[in-house]
């Protein structure tokens, strides 16, 4: 039942928005010019597109985003994740945004003969954002309340079996390979476009590509070192941000399973009672501080890291 509601929220709601705008275009067809404004400057509309092209591009992007959202939600659900209602609403709203953009351009062009006579940009923006927000809200309603998980059974904290007098270190990390290779693909694709299209306008896209690649590089990897000095965490290829937890502030460590939606996304995430160095879904080291705050990091073989942290905490307490 919950899966059906999630599928309706993530798939049917954005599709309904796309279909609704498609129907709106059919209803307004007699009142619309063939070319509509798609961008407004300080002096009014300054860029245009054929309505048929704009329709194809926006509804195509909307359909692709809807499919991506639906697959992500269903895969997360199949993996046992409690997909949050807020995440479903947000992604459905994003998937409906291209339909809103189309609706806004059409509304501004109603009863005009040239795209230069298009109405205010604000009405187009209100349509675009309004449709997105409404679709997101409806999707959140359809998805229903986020399932509350039963608290985990109490269990013994992991241990690495460190004996008195032994010294140990655990060095490891976690890498999001799709993100790493995605960054390379974006940079490579851009370079290919630049080479194959000599008249390509470089700067605007170059900045976007640079930001995307830097963002991916900054959040594609997390690295941890556990030793007698504490737990050192660093994020991304640049090793920033980083944080060192000393054993004075650590109470214990354990492992946790994070889902794609946990902590609200990837990168350095902060929420009530936790900080997460998250680069992927899956197992994570969860270090509980004496303050009750939990620092999480998505690393491979987190149980061994947690075991060593607990052993070093115990060794410090017994010293």
């Amino acid at each position: 039942m919950r899966t059906t509601r999630l599928a309706l929220a993530a798939g049917a709601v954005p599709l309904a928005a796309l279909g609704g705008v498609w129907a709106l275009q059919a209803a307004w067809s007699a009142r619309l010019p063939e070319v509509v404004a798609i961008h407004w400057g300080t002096d009014g509309p300054d860029r245009s597109s054929a309505l048929s092209t704009l329709t194809g591009v926006t509804l195509g992007i909307g359909a692709a985003l809807t499919l991506g959202t639906l697959v992500a939600v269903l895969v997360s659900r199949a993996r046992g994740s409690a997909v949050p209602r807020s995440a479903v609403g947000f992604t459905a709203g994003v998937a409906a945004l291209p339909a809103g953009v189309l609706a806004g351009s059409m509304y501004a062009a109603l009863d005009t003969t040239s795209w230069r006579d298009a109405g205010s940009a604000w009405s187009a923006v209100v349509w675009a954002l309004g449709l997105s927000v409404v679709a997101g809200a409806v999707a959140a309603l359809v998805a229903g309340p986020t399932e509350r998980r039963a608290p985990a059974e109490p269990r013994d904290l992991p241990s690495a079996g460190l004996r008195p007098g032994e010294r140990a270190t655990w060095i490891g990390g976690g890498t999001n390979y799709p993100m790493t290779f995605g960054g390379l693909a974006v940079a490579g694709g851009y370079a290919l476009l630049q080479v194959s299209l000599p008249g390509f306008d470089v700067m605007p896209l170059a900045l976007v590509v640079l930001v995307v690649v830097l963002a991916m590089a900054a959040t594609c990897r997390v690295r941890i070192r556990v030793d007698a000095d504490g737990v050192a965490l660093s994020l991304g290829l640049f090793g920033f941000p980083h944080r060192t937890l000393t054993f004075d502030e650590i109470a214990s460590a354990d492992t946790e399973q994070l889902t794609m939606w946990s902590a609200g996304g990837y990168g350095l995430r902060r929420g009530v009672g936790y900080t997460a160095f998250k680069v992927r879904a899956g197992e994570a080291l969860a270090v509980t501080l004496t303050s009750g705050h939990v620092v999480k990091a998505t690393v491979d073989h987190a149980d061994r890291a947690a075991g060593l942290v607990n052993d070093l905490v115990a060794a410090r307490e017994s010293a």
Binding site: A160, L162, R163, G165, E166, R167, A168, T169, W170, I171, G172, R304, L308
Partner: peptide, 9 residues
């Protein structure tokens, strides 16, 4: 990777 040593060994 866990590396452990015992200086007394």
């Amino acid at each position: 990777m866990l590396i452990r040593i015992d200086p007394a060994s």
